[in-house]
Simulated assay, not measured.
Amino acid sequence: MKWSEISIHTTQEAIEPISYILHEAGASGVVIEDPTDLVKEWDVKFGEIYELNPDDYPEEGVVIKAYLPVTSFLGETVDNIKENINNLLQYEIDLGYNTVQLSEVNEEEWATAWKKYYHPVKISERITIVPTWEEYKPVNSDEIIIELDPGMAFGTGTHPTTIMCIRALEQAVTKGAHVIDVGTGSGVLSIAAEKLGAGKVDAYDLDEVAVKSAAINIKLNKSQKVVTVKQNNLLNNIEGQVDIIVANLLAEIILRFVDDAAAKVKQGGLFITSGIIKSKKDLIKDSLIQAAFDVEEILQMEDWVAIIARKK
């Protein structure tokens, strides 16, 4: 099969929404080429860092790459991708150069391109994310391994927003806790919650492809007895209250259901949010406070923020 590599030159701020647009268009995942990775000081206390090749990165901005099968509908798909990216301007998201390029690759090159970007990543004291094709031996007896295949689901667990959510869950999840994961994507946060001791996890995503991919990853990690994944729009029509709600989504989407989250979290329960670009931190913080949450902690990694808020 022939594949087309779509390459979008944009900004850090636009990574999450453009990645989602590509996923909606049929891409199985994305590759991020960010030149700041070459010069920043890496947090090496959790695991090794793999050597990066400067030739793979743009001089400025970021390049997002994804792979689409070459079909008679490819031109229409690419036009829709461009239109949806341009629509992000209404949310005041900086698109930078916003250039789109296409190149053809064969299936073997496509597979190799994926695998060279993904290795086991130890993202916290206890949790390591391992691609399914990599062999990995736990370093510690209490280490938690989450297996993911970046080629079959949106979200590899290594983006700063996901890492912060998992670290927040590591602090927050108590044995038997009931957790809701809003916008589950690959299911990585739900899997992490289960492995940290949650007694029940409800994973929701509006996208049917994400629901199917999350279900595969949940089964792969033997988490299906605790984690249930369903198609749903945010917290619409969800009954009852839970101990923790976690949502790794765009700030604009989080704003839509802050009040619903306040209604669905038990008194003293937690709402963990991420996917928030640093410039919108105060907007989300103020919204949480108005919805009767106390902001307990704000985490920051690169240009991204995660907020841990407790219901009064």
Rank of each mutant, 00 (worst) to 15 (best):
E135A: 09
D207N: 15
D202T: 12
A306M: 05
N53K: 13
N84W: 02
G187S: 10
A306H: 05
T158R: 11
K2D: 08
D149E: 13
E208I: 09
A210E: 01
E48V: 15
D243N: 12
L148M: 14
S103H: 13
K278S: 14
K264D: 12
E252W: 01
L74H: 04
E296R: 08
K200G: 04
V78F: 02
E147Y: 14
S28E: 06
M301R: 09
E41C: 07
I244N: 10
G151E: 08
K281A: 01
V130A: 05
Q90E: 15
E51T: 14
V63I: 13
K266V: 12
K225G: 15
S190F: 00
N237H: 11
D260Y: 02
N248C: 12
N106K: 06
E83W: 08
R256W: 05
I146F: 07
D303S: 09
E51I: 13
V305F: 04
Q300H: 14
F73N: 14
S279F: 02
I284S: 03
D243I: 07
E125H: 10
G176E: 13
W110L: 09
K122W: 03
K65N: 15
I64C: 02
E16S: 04
E194G: 13
I180Y: 14
H178W: 09
R256D: 15
D79A: 02
I216E: 13
F46C: 04
L206H: 07
E83R: 12
K280W: 08
I144T: 06
D202H: 07
D43H: 05
K65D: 11
E252K: 07
N140E: 12
I276E: 10
V242K: 11
L283S: 11
I276R: 01
K200P: 12
D34V: 05
E16W: 00
P69W: 01
W42V: 11
